[in-house]
Design a protein around this nucleic acid. Structure first.
Lengths: 236, 236
DNA sequence: ATAAACAGACCAACGGTCGGTTTCAAGGGA
DNA sequence: TCCCTTGAAACCGACCGTTGGTCTGTTTAT
């Protein structure tokens, strides 16, 4: 007896499909809480089929994280590939990458994705992703800082160390943003919004001062970011 | 037939013993990789015995993390309880807490503990611990910053936000320290040591500038820290 | 014809449960 | 003071459902 129809997919397509399914499930249910059964049913693939393409659940996770990090890092690479702009402009473009991305896509949806990724249960997942991004972004930001030093506009002793510090600071903003998002629609919303604005201001002020720039040189490039964030609909 | 001897322990003692065992195992093997079987054998307790005191493996983890965080936070609380010192002195004591602790104990052993805790497999564990410390330390550091603002020596808009930023920056130092420790005894040791010094310098420079203090006001308080660290014996 | 893609029964090991057993301190009668 | 009773807390270990992963075989496509 033969089952009437089965379509063998090209390996790269199947791999991509499995990564898509895993990404959705890992971030909605959490990695540990997502069973292989969940993935298999969601992707409509058998166990044997899956393990033909991935050798473990962990490798599937790394596949998801690497793909996400590569997406971010490739955008950064585009920014730094511009040989004609000044270091200040490159830094500007670099720090605006995130805000631009968020603004150019459906912002409420992006907020929801961000919120989900920052749930407690995804802490390990997210930290691994951030580490990948930091490691990949350090040489890119270093290059910008080095250029600025050669131009005589940035005053830093060690560009690589400064780059790492600046990248670490963005974790601090993530934390403030998460709290603000959680406070939407509650009585704390107003205070949380003000705290978020404080965090944004302080992050960029810190970057200015670390690089020896006049206060206000760098900024988020999106004055209404807090307003746009807090007006987003809380999940419910 | 009766087994000749069994000692019932006082609940708090048994709990403490289980936490001790779990802490050792979680950080040496990793949380996910540590089996309840491992814990039970190491503590010489049966399954039923264990689950009489903890309701799950996760609760055991939280017990370990909370106990560790409480240890750190109680030291911070002692510093800030000093009502007579100036804000600068309090900040000094606060930032020196870690260096003092390391110096006053067997430093090579502390380095080994730090190295183990910072292994890749413990990333989730460590991040949860750091989060606990950060949340608990924010009001303490905020109090110091507030006092400094009232004295007119710190220039910050929002003390709580500034406190969180400063606490986040210490993650950056942890990262640099981990790399330096890993580089001991290799050909990269010299460079790694210099990078570590850069990171220490930049962390404290950043604190100075965030608080509007003259460069060099805050410091690690342990000039030979890098030397002491790099001279530690690599595990082998 | 042959190699890759897929299927699904199977397995060891895991975290956790549950009914039963042992320990031990607090009382009470002599 | 001594021994016995008693009951709650500490502890035991066989057992269970689920999990991630393997293995042998079957289907698909070139």
């Amino acid at each position: 007896m033969k089952t009437p129809a089965r379509k063998n997919m090209r390996p790269e397509d199947r791999r991509a499909q499995l990564l898509d399914c895993a990404q959705i499930l890992f971030f909605s249910k959490g990695f540990e809480e997502t069973t292989m059964q969940d993935v298999l049913e969601f992707a409509n693939v058998s166990k044997g089929g899956f393990y033909h393409h991935f050798k473990s659940k962990e490798e599937l996770l790394f596949g998801v994280l690497d793909r996400l990090a590569d997406g971010v890092l490739s955008q950064m690479a585009v920014v730094v590939a511009d040989e004609t702009s000044s270091a200040i402009d490159l830094l500007h473009n670099f720090t605006h990458l995130r805000a631009n991305y968020l603004r150019e896509h459906d912002y409420p949806a992006q907020v929801e994705i961000f919120r989900t990724m920052n749930l407690d249960r995804n802490l390990a997942l997210l930290e691994q992703f951030k580490r990948r991004v930091r490691v990949g972004a350090t040489p890119i930001l270093s290059k910008i800082l080095q250029k600025g030093r050669e131009e005589g506009v940035f005053n830093v002793k060690d560009v690589e160390t400064a780059a790492e510090l600046i990248l670490h600071i963005s974790n601090f903003l993530d934390f403030a943003l998460t709290r603000a998002i959680d406070a939407r629609g509650t009585e704390n919303a107003k205070l949380a919004g003000e705290k978020l604005q404080s965090a944004i201001d302080l992050q960029f002020l810190t970057i200015d001062r670390v690089l020896g720039l006049p206060d206000g040189t760098t900024n988020f490039g999106w004055p209404d970011a807090v307003k746009a964030t807090m007006e987003t609909k809380p999940a419910g």
